[in-house]
Design a binder for these strands. Structure first.
Lengths: 141, 141
DNA sequence: GGCTAATACTTAGCATAGCTAATTTATAGT
DNA sequence: ACTATAAATTAGCTATGCTAAGTATTAGCC
């Protein structure tokens, strides 16, 4: 095994642990949202990627269509998302976030990001630059 | 609002998104573990931090004691962890990962890390250095 | 020593979230 | 038109989250 590979594995391990810790830190804010993690995550995709079919959303969320069907039930009951029949295929369902859904989601995300930003107050400008570049690199994964 | 704060919020946002993407990427490997995410996560804490009381594990995992009690039921049934009465307090329960539990967990984590490392093959040495330093910084959160 | 209060965990019962299998409705291929 | 395929839902199971209530033990106090 090359030393490049060894280094990649070590860094991957450290990033993996860091990602778990980071999300654990901000997850505490989600209790205020009033909906479960699956609904919150699905709504997030609808808000940031826009309207889509149920099967596409299920695929992005790494769950099976029956699971997503029930998650969407919850979102629709709470008026956070809408079901509409897809144009051109009456079997399919087009999902859209409502204005209320967008509002709830953006507020929740802002709470998470603020919590994280507060934790980062001790970092220097150079450290912030490193983190910023790292975040961009990880965006290419 | 100072521009330092604004920068922190932007970077926090980018890191938050990156962490979500990263864990979504590696989560696909967990299906092979044969146990659910809550059991896997609890077992991970037992393996990496060592034996502890149920209430402590519940606190670390950000769930209530009744929830952890049932998660531990599952681990014990599968012989991945053991319950023992705590020395000096017969109300309390001391939890330990079994050898089998350690093995299952380490195999699962290795799969995750390998998957992530493979995705990082395109990065240059400099980029790897940035990521490595960033992971260390995030460890201080 | 013996009440009382607090603590650690479990049990009971509910909602949410994951799955597979089977059903319903609509589209596509020949 | 007939058959096969596809999209979503329904049914029913397990797992995972909660609160409220119960059980057993320990701690505090006089």
């Amino acid at each position: 095994m090359s030393s490049d590979t060894s280094r990649r594995v070590k860094t991957a391990d450290a990033l993996h642990s860091a990602a778990i810790r980071l999300l654990r830190l901000v997850r505490t804010e989600d209790a205020q949202a009033g909906i479960g993690p699956a609904q919150l995550s699905a709504l997030s995709v609808l808000v940031f990627r826009g309207e889509m079919m149920l099967s596409e959303l299920a695929s992005l969320e790494q769950v099976r269509p029956p699971t997503m069907s029930r998650i969407v039930d919850g979102l629709v009951q709470r008026k956070l998302a809408q079901r509409a029949s897809a144009p051109g295929d009456r079997r399919a369902v087009k999902l859209t976030a409502t204005a209320e859904g967008r509002k709830l989601l953006l507020a929740g995300k802002a709470r998470r990001v603020r919590t994280l930003a507060k934790r980062m107050e001790g970092f220097t400008k150079d450290e912030m630059t490193t983190l910023q570049v790292a975040a961009e690199l990880l965006g290419e994964l």
